[in-house]
Design a protein around this nucleic acid. Structure first.
Length: 557
RNA sequence: GGCCCCAUCGUCUAGCCUGGUCCAGGACGUCAGGUUCUCAUCCUGAAAACGGGGGUUCGAAUCCCCCUGGGGUCACCA
């Protein structure tokens, strides 16, 4: 009767954009459910917004997370509706915890009636004092209910006094079944009588997750390893409430290459360092006032707003470290690549390519078909940007030209609309030239940046001029002079025709291609590095090409 | 500090469960060559790891124990 169910959920708290670590967890959650779904079982991936912290949660952040997930192609089957994702076919919503308060109240009431939870009236000061004392005595502080507590009397007191509700944690050892780490036994020294309802009436995370997971039918809880110590609390709560106990999988964290935790603070750190290196004492951007700036500069823990940091980085020509999914999107990574890299951080398919190398390039569909925790790693991994860049470059280079062009156009439209306007008319040509050199959609601009300059604004690199124009016999500049009249005859002025003309020129004079290529390159771009010659000339167009050659001849001839 | 988790090249990892085919394979990075009009590609090659110590065994990267190291966690945050 019961056919296989794999119901997973990703439950972020909406306090900012989606962190790559979270994104990987979401990806694994999705893959697990999607795999079941594809084999005809009841596989569902739920997205739930854990906004029980009134102070830190925001609607904007929640929306940002939906956007990030949708961009990555991690589509949730149930949850808030966004971009074709979500919905509530089983009627288990709403999916914002702040809208489920009545539900929690019911179960808390039940626990209090049964004496499994109780009100506590300690002030934060009292608790702090106890914690400090415990620490000084080198013990860990664990809140335990007063031996002589009078439950009925306390319940009466609740009506008039500020209080929290605590769960009377049973002392039996709790066994946690984890499909990644194996079974782990927690003895009762791990947990105390933790708070399940805060003074403001909101449930704590521990209580809300347990209730929601039960009510939403969650069968597999996939979450970060930092939650491992919470699990015995959750299991105890599930037992007390008579709930099912889901299967857990605690995935290891993702770190910076230096071993530090990948955090939003890294952006502040990079910005601060850049300011110090530049010897700045006051803010270079108006959005950060003097006091704030001074304080930020000396206080390593203080953080600027994301927008302020971006302005600062733009001003200092600094690239901030990517931490959130949104950062990678801005940097010009495509979602397929980010997903692929993230999935590989802790999981691998254990298959070979035809040439005998390990299979590591795959898409989300492949992931959904093959994912399991049996092949997932238990140890924390470091985020290697070089490898991500390599994946990105390989993928971008291998795309069909039209696909690259449209991906690039979409990226430019979102991130650099000003630039897109400037180059929109010859985007296909520029895309063709940029694609083989593009590592990301962002740095694709670099190899074709010379087209953005006015003909008269080309600055000639001195070394390039010496090497390409002055050396040789006849000198580069003479070759250029000889070639100049040929330009007009090239028709149409397109890469193939240009290349053919250059080749013919070389053959007739028995020259190596380099003899004319480099002088031309300097004339057109000011330097010795650019895309193929045909692409380079075609990108600026015949009129500009002639103008640039003439100007160069005039200056060095 | 208590408790929990983890441990193969610089990094991500394959191999470990079901010891021998592993003087440990791949990818990224690095270095050295080569192809190409520059750059980027592409091709060839090289250096590079089983944290240490005890067991078990004819035999251990693989199984067990200890040590060391790394990480996590000890909130009215999630």
């Amino acid at each position: 009767m019961a056919y296989e169910q794999v119901i997973t959920r990703f439950a972020p708290s909406p306090t900012g954009h989606l962190h790559v670590g979270g994104a990987r967890t979401a990806l694994f959650c999705w893959a697990l459910a999607e795999k079941a779904r594809r084999t005809g079982a009841d596989g569902r991936f739920i997205l739930r917004i854990e906004d029980t912290d009134q102070k830190r949660s925001s609607d904007d952040a929640a929306k940002g997370i939906l956007e990030d997930l949708a961009w990555m192609g991690i589509e949730w089957h149930e949850g808030p509706e966004f971009a074709g994702c979500g919905g509530d076919p089983r009627g288990v919503g709403p999916f914002h915890q702040s809208q489920r308060l009545d539900l929690y109240a019911e179960y808390i009431e039940q626990l209090i009636q049964e004496g499994k939870a109780y009100p506590a009236f300690d002030t934060p000061e009292e608790l702090n004092a106890k914690r400090t004392a415990a620490r000084e005595a080198k013990r860990s502080f664990r809140y335990k209910r007063n031996e002589g507590a009078d439950h009925a009397k306390d319940i009466e007191r609740m009506k008039t006094e500020p209080h929290v509700i605590r769960f009377a944690m049973p002392t039996d050892p709790v066994e946690v079944k984890d499909s990644l780490l194996g079974d782990i036994e927690f003895t009762d020294e791990h947990t105390d009588d933790f708070v399940i309802r805060k003074q403001d009436g909101f449930p704590t995370y521990h209580f809300a997750v347990v209730v929601d997971d039960e009510l939403m039918g969650v069968t597999h809880v996939v979450r970060g390893q930092e939650h491992l110590q919470n699990t015995p609390k959750h299991v105890a709560l599930q037992q007390a409430l008579g709930f099912r106990i889901p299967v857990y999988a605690h995935v290891p964290s993702v770190f910076n290459p230096d071993g530090s935790k990948m955090s939003k603070r890294d952006k502040d750190k990079a910005g601060r360092q850049a300011c110090k290196d530049a010897g700045l004492t006051e803010s270079p951007v108006s959005s950060i006032d003097a006091d704030r700036f001074a304080n930020w500069l000396k206080d390593k823990k203080s953080q600027l707003e994301t927008e302020q940091l971006r302005e600062l980085a733009a001003e200092l020509d600094l690239s901030l470290p990517e931490i959130d999914v949104e950062d990678f999107r801005r940097s010009g990574y495509i979602p397929e690549v980010l997903c692929n890299y993230l999935a590989l951080l802790g999981w691998n398919p254990g298959m070979k390519n035809d040439d005998g190398t390990d299979l590591e390039r795959f898409d989300n569909t492949f992931l959904a078909e093959h994912f399991s925790f049996a092949r997932a790693g238990k140890s924390p991994s470091k985020f290697d940007r070089d490898k991500l860049v390599a994946f990105s470059q390989q993928t971008l280079n291998a795309m069909p030209a039209e696909q690259f062009e449209s991906a690039w156009r979409a990226w430019l439209l979102r991130e650099r609309p000003d630039l897109l306007k400037q180059i929109a008319d010859r985007l296909p040509l520029l895309a063709r030239a940029a694609q083989p050199r593009a590592r990301t959609l962002s740095d694709a601009i670099e190899p074709v940046a010379f087209v953005l300059l006015a003909d008269a604004a080309i600055e000639y690199d001195e070394k390039a001029v010496n090497k390409a124009l002055k050396k040789g016999d006849p000198s580069g500049i003479e070759q250029l002079r000889a070639f100049a009249p040929e330009v007009d005859a090239i028709d149409p002025f397109e890469p193939e025709q240009i290349d053919a003309a250059v080749r013919a020129f070389c053959e007739s004079r028995e020259l190596g291609m380099g003899k004319i290529a480099q002088p031309l390159r300097v004339a057109i771009t000011g330097g010795t590095v650019s895309p193929g010659l045909g692409d380079t000339l075609a990108a600026v167009g015949k009129a500009s090409a002639k103008a640039r050659i003439d100007r160069c001849l005039a200056q060095f001839g």
